[in-house]
């Protein structure tokens, strides 16, 4: 099981800013170990952010997104105590979903 997505959601003047970091190796499939073996591709392909039940961001990633994908964005609305959830799925079919409350 992978580590939780670190999420911070703060609201100011009617706009909620979301900062998130999903722990993931994001291997391209091109990296070689010292002894020459290729490291298999392993990267997040889909990431969705919800505010309560509403989609506020939908991302599709290729392997050019950095290790431990990091995103900052904002949406109109949101109130302290409401939830922001981040879900991802990777090219191996693994997935993870985490939720925080807006501060």
């Amino acid at each position: 099981m992978s580590d939780p997505v670190r999420i911070r959601a703060t609201v100011a003047e009617g706009v909620t800013q979301v900062r998130l970091m999903a722990a993931h190796p994001m291997e391209t499939g091109r990296r070689r170990l010292a002894e020459g073996a290729l490291v298999a591709a392993h990267y997040i392909t889909d990431l969705t952010v919800l505010h309560e039940a509403r989609v506020v961001l939908q991302a599709r990633f290729g392997p050019s997104v950095s290790r431990d994908p990091y995103l900052v964005f904002s949406f109109a609305g949101g109130a302290p105590g409401e939830t922001v959830s981040v879900s991802w799925r990777d090219n191996r079919g693994d997935s993870r979903s985490d939720t925080v409350t807006i501060r």
Partner: peptide, 27 residues
């Protein structure tokens, strides 16, 4: 990224209400 082995890094869909401004990190 025009010189990367994988040209397309990411695609984001921004529903109504999401601000058209986004920061991320790429290789």
């Amino acid at each position: 990224v025009d010189q990367n082995p994988t040209t397309l890094a990411a695609v984001f869909a921004l529903p109504d209400g999401t601000l058209p401004r986004l920061q991320t990190r790429i290789k």
